[in-house]
Write a protein that binds this DNA or RNA. Structure first.
Lengths: 207, 207
DNA sequence: AATCCGAACGACCGATCGGTCTTTTTATCT
DNA sequence: AGATAAAAAGACCGATCGGTCGTTCGGATT
């Protein structure tokens, strides 16, 4: 990798993937057009084929790129919070912060990708589903940790479904209805739920 | 409307809209292609322009058709249940039944339409947002009824957000993960929530 | 019987889609 | 300096997109 050409190639490759994920968060992974992507990324359309064999390969790498972005901005910050109930809440808050900061113009890459590909079998759907399984699995384990510590009484899979649903819905509601209220609802919903399920509510912040 | 030609025209118009809503529930309202729609509906592509000026007009009518379908299969059945807490639960259950019966191949027209158009200003987004406001407003009023009757202690807008989120999420989870478990989670989530908020849990079914 | 009109069709349009092929640029290696 | 290889560009391809146009067909009006 000391080769300056490959270094340059990797750089533009990453830049293109960043643009691809941003565009895909708006129009979806398939709604993403190679022509538009090339325009936004400032390269020629055929230049894309120097990095990817076809659109599907680019889509697969975009999923991977988005996964790393999610880990960096949602998972990692929450790891700074001690295990248990507080980390569960931290994960939810980190996601909401990710959305609220407008890090992606479409709000959430994976939300758009899931809706788009849930009916379209193939490698991209599989990769998206796998990434979501990883994330939900991580969320479930965080919940299980809290249960093991006696800070929570809950079925991890059930609670993970609820937190995921309440978190994802904010993407739509913040865009189609009132934005601040959508975030307020998403925050209160999970906070109230955790309070009701915890024997020690002092672990959670006040209103 | 005694004109047999117009009657025939209306019939095929409705049939086409039915196909359009079904296709749009899978690929989205914009992912819907006039060529494919014509093929599925058994008419020629140019035949579509006898009924609609352009694609946008067809999209707007498709939203309207989907709205009527939603009222018929979700709202109306729940109206058979007495006002109050039980009707709130009935609305949630009616939606889940609508999804579970597979009435639309993509699961939910409005879910797909919202995700697709939340970032795309224009008449179609406005119409979709309006339909969703109507539905959420109806849900809120049902909750308010239950509150007024003393069967529920809740902020209607907050609870409506939660029920909507927990209900919509099943579209994704049932397709990308385990289908029966997704429905089970969606049912339990709302049932538990209503139980916790109601002074009289006997109004709700046992497990 | 002649006329009229709405539904529907086939042919065709420019634009854009994903993708291929050839060439130019740029950095490395001998 | 010259050969080499990777990155990127440009021209171009068939297919499909949304949409137009002129025509045909069949039921309604007179």
């Amino acid at each position: 990798m000391a080769d300056g050409r490959k270094v340059r190639g990797q750089r533009s490759r990453e830049a293109i993937l960043g643009s691809a994920v941003a565009l895909a968060s708006v129009d979806g992974l398939d709604g993403l057009t190679l022509g538009r992507l090339a325009g936004v990324a400032g390269v020629s359309k055929s230049g894309l084929f120097a990095h990817w064999r076809d659109k599907e390969q680019l889509q697969l790498d975009a999923v991977e790129w988005a996964r790393r972005q999610w880990i960096e901005h949602v998972v990692t910050p929450a790891l700074a919070v001690p295990q248990g109930l507080r980390r569960v809440l931290a994960l939810h808050e980190a996601r909401l912060a990710f959305y609220e900061e407008g890090r992606l113009p479409g709000g959430c890459f994976f939300f758009a990708a899931q809706v788009e590909f849930d009916d379209r079998p193939g490698p991209v759907k599989d990769r998206v589903a796998e990434a979501m399984n990883d994330w939900l699995g991580f969320l479930e384990r965080a919940i299980q940790d809290a249960v093991d510590r006696g800070e929570l009484r809950a079925d991890p899979a059930q609670l993970a479904y609820e937190i995921e649903a309440l978190g994802e819905a904010v993407v739509i509601h913040s865009r189609l209805r009132d934005r601040p209220r959508a975030f307020a609802h998403a925050r209160r919903a999970v906070l109230d739920r955790l309070r009701a399920l915890s024997p020690d509510p002092t672990l959670l912040p006040e209103d």
